[in-house]
């Protein structure tokens, strides 16, 4: 089996899929190492769902080829299907049926006999905190519960590769962190996860590699750290005590750093990008801090860090409005996360 020799769960070359005039996939290449979370990050309409559907044997590509654990998705579709599970972006269980009925149905279809199917279903409902909702129709579940039953339905037989298409879109912070915990457990047991998301912090936290997709193309690929360092050495974030001092701080900083300084949405915060080597960046930052002090401006927080993935994303994608909407959503979600913990 070639999955052992290459160590790749997915290898795709030049995948193309068109819908009328839309090129949903415009030559996607992917190499997903086995045993980790791989993030497919992109704005609305980037082609994430289409890519996942092609890899899960649901959609036939118009061009290119893809192999899952060495099995061609077109010619050996059944071999692929026996190794993968997919949790779609939208409902992937039957809303009219109860949680238990859904899981028993799928367990039976995977070949479990009746008593074993029921036992497995109950075990999963318990582990996913759905025991109380066993006999409730799925359409009466909350958003978080639905996501959990969707994922539970995907691991009835622990798959070798699990596709999760935007598993946390529309979830509250608590439900998101529950899903993250589940994803970590799944990967911890050796399953490879292909996760699509519009949220950069999610990819940052979970994925060991990320492909940034836009207009059906992979526009960047690497570890979260590589992606961040690809667009510049760092970012200076400054938080002031007093919002009234911001105009003055802005001019002091832009002089000291020699770059454009952006006021943030928060009235006491400023952000600037510093270029050059790491050493140059830190000396510049140090000088900026002392000049702020010399100007009598009180600084509550001063940091020099790698750019956030949000900034990477904005720098990489030309779809600025969509991307900034996504990053604003992720920023507020991550802010809430901290308080929820």
């Amino acid at each position: 089996m070639s999955d052992r020799s290459t160590g790749h769960a997915i290898e795709a070359e030049g995948l193309v899929k068109t819908f009328g005039k839309t090129r949903a996939l415009d030559g996607i290449d992917l190499r997903v190492p086995a045993g980790s979370v791989y993030g497919l990050l992109g704005p609305n309409g980037a082609g994430k769902t289409t890519a996942v559907r092609v890899l899960a044997t649901l959609t036939r590509p118009d061009g290119g080829s893809a192999r899952v654990f060495g099995h061609d998705v077109l010619r050996e579709a059944n071999a692929v299907r026996s190794k993968v599970s997919m949790t779609g972006q939208y409902a992937s269980v039957d809303e009219d049926l109860t949680g238990l009925e859904n899981l028993v149905l799928l367990a039976r279809l995977l070949g479990h006999r009746k008593p074993a199917a029921r036992a497995r279903a109950e075990e999963l409902l318990a582990a996913f905190g759905l025991t109380d909702a066993t006999d409730r129709q799925v359409k009466k579940y909350s958003g978080g519960m639905r996501r959990r039953i969707d994922i539970a339905a995907s691991i009835l037989n622990t798959p070798e590769l699990l596709f999760l298409d935007e598993p946390t879109t529309g979830l509250d912070p608590r439900s998101r962190s529950q899903v993250w915990e589940i994803i970590r457990s799944v990967v911890g047991h050796g399953t490879t996860v292909l996760l699509t998301t519009q949220y950069l912090d999610e990819a940052d936290r979970l994925a060991s590699r990320i492909a940034v997709v836009d207009h059906g193309k992979v526009i960047a690929e690497g570890t979260p750290g590589e992606l961040k360092s690809s667009i510049g050495s760092g970012t200076v974030h400054v938080r002031l005590r007093d919002a009234g001092a911001r105009p003055k701080a802005l001019s002091v900083l832009s002089l000291a750093l020699g770059t454009a300084v952006e006021p943030d949405a928060d009235p006491v915060s400023l952000t600037a990008r510093v270029d050059g080597s790491d050493f140059e960046a830190s000396t510049q930052a140090a000088r900026a801090l002392s000049e702020l002090a010399a100007a009598g401006i009180v600084v509550d927080d001063f940091s020099l860090g790698q750019p956030s993935l949000d900034e990477v994303f904005l720098a990489l994608t030309d779809a600025v409005p969509a991307a900034s909407a996504a990053s604003a959503a992720s920023a507020s979600a991550s802010a809430e996360m901290e308080t929820a913990r």
Binding site: G111, E123, G129, T158, R174, Q178, G188
Partner: peptide
């Protein structure tokens, strides 16, 4: 009362790959 806290132990137990039944 329904707040769910995922526990690595219980999740681990259900994820442990059991014997795969034959295709129906």
């Amino acid at each position: 009362q329904t707040v769910f806290v995922p526990s690595p132990e219980t999740l681990g137990a259900v994820l442990a790959p059991g014997a795969r039944p034959p295709r129906p």
